[in-house]
Amino acid sequence: MAPLSKSFEAGAARGMLGLPAALLRLMAGKPIVRDGHALDVQCQLLLKIMRLRGAKLGGSDVATERRQMRAQSSTLAPRAHNPLAVHEWVVAGDNGALAARCYRPESADGAAIVFYHGGGFVLGDLDSHDGICRALADRAQATLIAIDYRRAPEHAAPAAARDAIAAFRDIAARADDLGIDAHRIAVAGDSAGGNLAAVVAQQTRHDIAAPAAQLLLYPAVDFAEDKPSKTRLGSGFLLEKSSMDWFEGHYLPANCNKRDPLVSPLHGELGGVAPAIVITAGFDPLRDEGEAYGAALQTAGVNTIRRCETGLIHGFANFAGGVERARQALDHAADALRTRFDAIN
């Protein structure tokens, strides 16, 4: 898509979602309610537009899906309010160097976030999540380092997890040279990236420079057991059962142990992991496993903030530039992370 077309599409989408509430409701249709919660009207209209355009996650060939995610990612992406210095970096992976991108606000004070993008372990890259990274770095006033880990199907599980762990350890080991505080580094991610952040928090909890916090946005944490929300919300809300099956089929090798903590962190050892912020969405098929992970962290004695954004859908951070409740949710998450950083000072 040409830059002008992308700019026009983004402006049109933001303008439509910014219409008065009465017009939004008229265009979106009758309110949708599940489990006692009403779908946010902007999300409902967005889903309607996506259905009309035939947009969905997964199902086509991998190369096409990757191009589509990259092309569509900027349409409603959140924006930073303040200047950021952005640099391309290289960090160590489990089997060679990985590309990374560093976002540093002028107000950065040594706190840092190692961020892992979503995309079902198959899609997504540094560009698809550029907006989220800019917004999160800006709002949390912390240096953010996004990691371009290896993706499936070229590299099946647990390659992504091993890359995520190696990248965190490399950054922590070089913290002084990178201008960050090794004892104030959080891990964060959305969806599949939330899975990886949770894995890193578990696997590095005994490191000298272990994560200071973990921010998990609507994380996928359990391939072993399907929770009720996968059925109740598995159709009509962007991430569908067919999408999840497509991602899993590409990510997990044959005869994979789905309870391996490198794959399903819900089945890992949670005692002693970093304080957590677990954000789920009320209309997300992954809602119940995210809620279960937050509850398991609390049972293990981990300081955990649990928040369900009841009216939102999976992937809402990608829409925080046009959906007001998504913007508020991302702000809340960043504020909670900043509070954690400040408590370490």
Rank of each mutant, 00 (worst) to 15 (best):
I277F: 14
E248F: 14
I279R: 06
R259D: 00
L252W: 12
Y251C: 09
C256S: 07
D260L: 05
V263Y: 13
E248N: 09
G249W: 11
W246Q: 07
H250L: 14
A281D: 09
T280H: 11
D245E: 10
G268L: 12
A281W: 10
I277K: 05
E240K: 01
V263T: 05
A276V: 03
H267M: 04
L252V: 05
S264T: 00
H250K: 02
N255M: 14
V278C: 10
T280S: 14
E248Y: 07
A274C: 08
N257K: 03
G268H: 10
L239V: 09
K241R: 13
E248C: 13
D245V: 08
R259K: 15
C256K: 07
N255D: 15
N255S: 10
G272V: 03
V263G: 12
G271K: 06
I279K: 10
G271R: 04
L266R: 01
I277A: 15
G272Y: 08
D245H: 09
G271L: 08
H267L: 11
G282L: 13
T280D: 15
H267K: 06
P265E: 13
L270T: 00
R259Y: 06
V273L: 03
T280M: 10
L252N: 09
A254R: 13
N255H: 14
A281K: 10
V273K: 00
P265L: 02
G249F: 13
K241F: 04
G272H: 09
E248H: 04
S264G: 09
L270H: 07
G271F: 10
P275K: 04
Y251V: 01
P265Q: 05
S242R: 08
A276N: 03
C256R: 10
L252F: 07
V263E: 07
H267R: 07
E248M: 03
P253I: 08
S243E: 01
P261G: 06
V263I: 13
A254W: 11
S243G: 05
A276P: 11
Y251T: 04
C256G: 03
G249S: 05
L266S: 05
G272R: 05
R259G: 00
E248L: 07
N255A: 14
G271V: 06
P265S: 02
P265N: 08
K241D: 12
L239Q: 05
P253G: 09
V278M: 02
I279F: 14
A274Q: 03
H267W: 15
C256E: 12
S264H: 02
D245Q: 14
A276C: 05
F247N: 04
V278I: 09
V273T: 12
P253R: 07
E248A: 15
E248V: 01
I279N: 15
N255T: 01
G272A: 12
G271P: 01
V263R: 06
G282W: 11
P265I: 00
P275C: 00
S243A: 06
D260C: 08
K258T: 11
P265R: 06
S242H: 14
D260Y: 12
I277Y: 15
L252R: 04
K241G: 13
H267Q: 09
G272N: 10
P261S: 09
G271Y: 02
I277E: 07
S243D: 09
K258A: 08
E240D: 12
E240R: 05
G268C: 02
V278R: 00
N255K: 09
F247K: 04
E269K: 08
D245I: 04
E248W: 09
G268E: 10
G249R: 02
N257T: 06
V273Y: 00
L239D: 11
S264A: 11
F247H: 03
G271S: 14
